[in-house]
Amino acid sequence: MDNIAELEKKLTRKGEVSIVGCGRLGVRVAFDLLEVHRGGPKKVYLFDNAKIAENDIVHRRLGGKIGEYKVKFVERFFGDRVVGITENINEDNLHLLTGDVVIICIAGGDTIPTTRAIIDYAKKRGIKTIGTNGVFGIEENIKVCDAKYAKGPAQFLNLDKEGHIVVGTGKFIRDLEPITPYTLDEIAKKIVIECLKVLNKIK
């Protein structure tokens, strides 16, 4: 039987991850990913220029303070494993993205152009991308698929090649269903699983 101590030494953190957006979903993904034990990323870069407001319940429940930058709260919580960057990623600052995986958790308004720009930038650099495909719905099965074949909001990315993984309910805002914490928890869980699959392949 293999020596347990030797096996434990092999289970180390690998790679780096950029998370774009630290809202209700992004903060869940960050915490879940950083909580992974004997694995997970060495470093997480978190991008968002928003501050914690009174209605940011999940941030406050985790220990964030009203008025504190969301990314700086996560950085404060996890120390040197996180770099919190108080900027929103857009087509002018894509060069800030780094690592082996980019997780896109942006919301509000038309996010398609920014998401598409991130995917194109990352693909040229061999960086894997994971995003969402609808977060609305009361009692939904969360689906994981390649965005090229997605039914739901991600279909409007109009991607002609495989490689961008999306996770979500497939529902739109026009379906007039709320975004629930338990749906976000499940989406975050599956995003983290997809990310770990990429990180585990790093030598």
Rank of each mutant, 00 (worst) to 15 (best):
I165F: 12
V101A: 07
V29L: 01
F31Q: 02
K42T: 05
N93D: 13
I130G: 07
F156V: 03
N49Q: 11
K14F: 09
L46N: 01
K201Q: 15
E162D: 13
L96P: 13
K124C: 13
I104Q: 00
E162M: 10
R60N: 10
V36H: 03
I57L: 15
R28F: 13
M1P: 15
C195L: 02
F156Y: 15
K190I: 08
G15M: 10
D160W: 09
G40Y: 00
A150L: 09
I187V: 08
E54Q: 08
F31H: 02
V36I: 02
K70E: 14
N49L: 05
L199R: 03
D146T: 04
K10T: 03
G26V: 02
N88A: 05
L159V: 06
F172P: 12
K43T: 00
D185A: 08
G26M: 02
R125D: 13
A147D: 07
N49F: 07
T12F: 10
K42L: 10
V17P: 08
L33N: 04
K70A: 12
I85P: 01
T169E: 02
I119Y: 10
I104K: 00
H164T: 04
N49I: 04
I57K: 10
R61I: 12
K70Y: 14
E87R: 03
R125T: 07
K189S: 13
R174S: 12
D56Q: 09
D48G: 02
K161R: 11
T12E: 14
R38G: 08
T129P: 11
L184W: 11
F78K: 00
V36T: 02
I173C: 09
K124L: 14
D175F: 07
D146S: 00
F47V: 01
